[in-house]
């Protein structure tokens, strides 16, 4: 990638206006991957100069600044305690510490890469995104928007719930992108199940969740059926990391394991009591 200029905004407002000023202006998050693109960038908007690197406990929610690096997230105690620490776990399996010191959660989320190991757990943590202009929207809603993001992501908001979580990344080798990643959580609103790297981006398994959340008392039969539904109804396809058929099988296995794990864990905590 060729970068013609670097813009250091003083405020989010400046960053936003610079972004919308020219179609070849881009927000630069971690900036690790510019090299891999062939595009020419007119001005790269350097968000690193804004105070967007933080994890803040607001009582009912936790806010993560968009420029927080993956390694900061991995080592943050507040995040370790959210939803069984699945976000910390997921992040700790991405490449090496060095790269995790550079790339940011905002960059990862906005890029919406199919293989993202961040989006899948965030979906099951009921995460919301706060953009400078658009305001707060759910992560699901953001994933449905097509085309380039012409807004500046300020922070990610995760509700603080009594919850249990499970995350599994299936890879051929520890450092590879996932064949699939699976995230399952349980909080007082019920179960959430998401599967990513299908190879397209993480998605909630609504039918599976509906089935579980409508059941009075979730037993193994519900879990089996939910796992089957997740594998059956989410869309999977082939790439060189795995076939559609294998992805479906892995999904069925790991959604089940995830549900069993979070159910036990959530029950042990006495459901609504932590």
């Amino acid at each position: 990638m060729k970068v013609n200029g670097l813009f250091k905004p003083k405020t989010l407002d400046e960053a936003y206006h610079k972004l919308t000023e020219h179609s070849k202006n881009v927000v630069m998050a971690g900036g690790a991957w510019l090299r891999l693109s062939n595009r020419t960038v007119e001005e790269a908007i350097d968000l690193s100069v804004l105070p967007l690197s933080y994890v803040k406990d607001r009582g009912d929610v936790v806010e993560i600044g968009s420029m927080t690096t993956l390694h900061e997230i991995e080592t943050d105690d507040t995040i370790k305690s959210l939803y069984g620490g699945i976000l910390s776990q997921a992040v700790s399996q991405i490449m090496g510490i060095g790269l995790r010191n550079v790339v940011t959660i905002g960059g990862n989320v906005v890029a919406r890469h199919g293989f993202s190991d961040v989006i899948t757990p965030l979906l099951t943590m009921r995460a919301k995104l706060h953009f400078y202009k658009r305001g707060t929207i759910s992560l699901e809603a953001f994933l449905d928007i097509r085309g380039k993001t012409t807004d500046v992501l300020e922070k990610i908001i995760i509700p603080k719930r009594k919850a249990a979580g499970y995350f599994k990344k299936v890879t051929k080798t520890a450092l590879d992108f996932a064949i699939i990643n699976v995230s399952v959580t349980c909080d007082e609103e019920g179960f959430s199940v998401a599967v990513g790297s299908r190879p397209s981006v993480g998605q909630l398994a609504y039918e599976a969740m509906g089935l579980l959340n409508q059941a009075k008392d979730v037993d193994e039969k519900h879990i089996d059926l939910a796992a089957f539904k997740a594998a059956d109804l989410l869309k999977f396809s082939d790439n060189h990391r795995g076939s559609q058929a294998y992805r479906e099988e892995l999904t069925a296995v790991y959604v089940k394991r995830g549900l069993l794990a979070v159910k036990t864990c959530f029950n042990q905590r006495g459901g609504h009591d932590d």
């Binding site: 690790a32 690193s48 390694h71 090496g96 060095g98 790269l99 010191n101």
Partner: peptide, 18 residues
């Protein structure tokens, strides 16, 4: 890999301007 403020980073993915 180099250290920036004692944190390891890949220098091929770290922008000097920052």
């Amino acid at each position: 890999t180099v250290l920036v403020d004692l944190k390891p980073v890949p220098s091929c993915a770290t922008l000097t301007a920052r």
